[in-house]
Simulated scan of single mutants.
Amino acid sequence: MWNNILGHEQQKEFLQRYLQAKERPHALLFLGAEGLGKKQLALAFAKTLLCPQHSGEDGCESCRLLNLEDGNLSHPDFLLLKREADEKTGRLKDIGIDQIRDLTGKAAFAPVMSDRKVLVLEDADRMTVPAANSFLKLLEEPPAGWVIIMLATREDKLLSTILSRVVCLRFAPVPVALVEQELVRRGLAAEQAAVLARISEGSVGLAVSLAERQVFEMRKQAVAFLEALPLQTPMNYLAGRVWQQKGFERQPALLLCQLLQLLLRDLLMLKLRTGNPCYNQDLATNLAEQSRNWSVKSLHEALAAVQDAFWNLENNVGVRMALEAMALKIDNAYKE
C-alpha cells in the first residue's frame, strides 16, 4: 500500500494497522524535515481512510473526490488547513487564530459521505500562540469521527500540551541510494542524480525542487566565488556577480547560501580528513585542493557568515546587502 511513496516503511506499516484497529488515536503528528514525503503520505492515508473499502484505489466516488494525481481535494469530509499568503508581500504567514476558529466552526457539521472526517494540518509548527492554544482545545475535545493529521518540521515549536495529545510518527531521510534511483527514474542523468541525492540529504522533494531551480548553474557561481578567494579588489569583484545585480531575487539568494554552506562543509570535512563522503562528490578532487588553503578556524567563520546571511534573507534584509556582507566576511575569514 502506498508503494508510490518512497521509503518510510515503518510509518506505512503503522498506518496500515491503524486502518484495521478498533480503537484509534484521533490525532497523529508527522514530524520530519521538509521534502521527505510527509504530506504525500498524509494525503494518501486520508484518501484510504475515507474510501469505503479502505483501499484508496477502487475508483469509488470517495476516491474520485480525493484524486491526488490531478489535485482534486473536493471530498466533503476532507479538510486541508495551511498557511496563507500575505496580500501585500505574497509571503506565507503563520497560521492565525481566525483560521483555527473557522476550523472549529466546521466541527459542528457531521460527515457527509464517510463515517469520519479527516483534517490535514500543514505547518502545524507555524501556528501563532493564540492559534495553537485554540487548536489545543480541539485536540482536547475532538469532534466525533474526526481524524487529525498534523505535519511539522520543528518539534520545539509545538506546545508541549499539543505534543502530549498526539501520536508522533517521525520521518527520517530516505536512503541516498533510493533517492538517486528515483531521480534517475524521473529522467535525470545519473551523475546529476547522484549529486542531488546527496545534496538533498535524503529528501526526494528537495532534490526535485533543486533540479527544477537549475541548481547546477547556481552552484557554478558559488564555486567560482570560492575559487576567486582571496579577492584582491572585493568591491570590484562583487560588482560583476549576477547575485549582486539589481533584481536578483530572494529565493535564488537563499539557494546560493545553501549551496555555499554545503561546499564549505565539504571543505571542512576534507580539511579534517573525516573520511565522510562529500555532498558535492563530483567536485571532490577540486575541493580537496582548495581545502589546503583554508584553516579550520576560517572555515567555521565562513560557515557562520553564510548562516547569518541566510537568516537575514529569511527576515527581509535586502538581498544585495545580505549577500555583499556575507561575501566580504568569507573573504576576510579566508585571508586570516
Rank of each mutant, 00 (worst) to 15 (best):
S203F: 02
G145V: 03
L299F: 11
V296K: 14
N280K: 06
L68M: 06
R17T: 00
S295W: 08
R265Q: 14
A325C: 10
K12Y: 07
K246I: 10
K93L: 06
N276T: 14
K157D: 13
D331R: 07
D102H: 07
S55W: 00
A224R: 14
K329L: 07
L229P: 00
P173A: 05
K12W: 07
A177K: 14
R292H: 15
A253S: 12
S203V: 03
K82F: 01
T104L: 11
A108N: 01
E336Q: 14
F30C: 01
Q261N: 14
L81T: 00
A33E: 12
K88I: 01
N280M: 08
E336N: 12
R170Y: 09
Q245R: 14
F45N: 01
L299A: 11
D308I: 12
S62E: 00
K47Y: 03
L178T: 09
A327L: 03
R198S: 11
R165C: 08
A44P: 04
E201C: 09
E34Y: 04
K271V: 04
Q261D: 13
W294V: 08
T104N: 06
Q281R: 15
V147M: 09
Q221C: 06
L158S: 08
K297V: 11
P252E: 06
G187K: 13
S55R: 07
N332D: 06
L260C: 08
K137H: 11
K271L: 10
G71V: 02
E23N: 08
D308V: 11
L272Y: 13
T161P: 05
R91M: 06
D282T: 11
G145N: 05
Q181H: 12
A305F: 10
K271D: 11
A108Y: 07
E324L: 09
D282K: 09
L28H: 04
E155H: 12
Q290S: 14
I162V: 14
F135G: 04
L287A: 13
R241M: 08
R101A: 01
E84P: 00
E122Q: 10
R320M: 06
L136P: 08
A132D: 08
T48F: 03
F45C: 02
S298R: 10
L81A: 02
A322P: 04
E227T: 12
C257M: 09
R64P: 02
G56K: 03
F109C: 01
Q11W: 11
A152Q: 07
Q20W: 07
P173R: 10
L264T: 09
V184T: 13
Q192T: 15
A107I: 00
D125E: 07
P52Y: 07
L254H: 02
A197Y: 10
C257N: 12
S164W: 08
E227F: 11
G59H: 02
D58W: 00
N4I: 06
E57L: 04
K93N: 02
T89V: 02
L270A: 13
S74N: 05
L268N: 03
I100H: 04
L66I: 01
A304I: 04
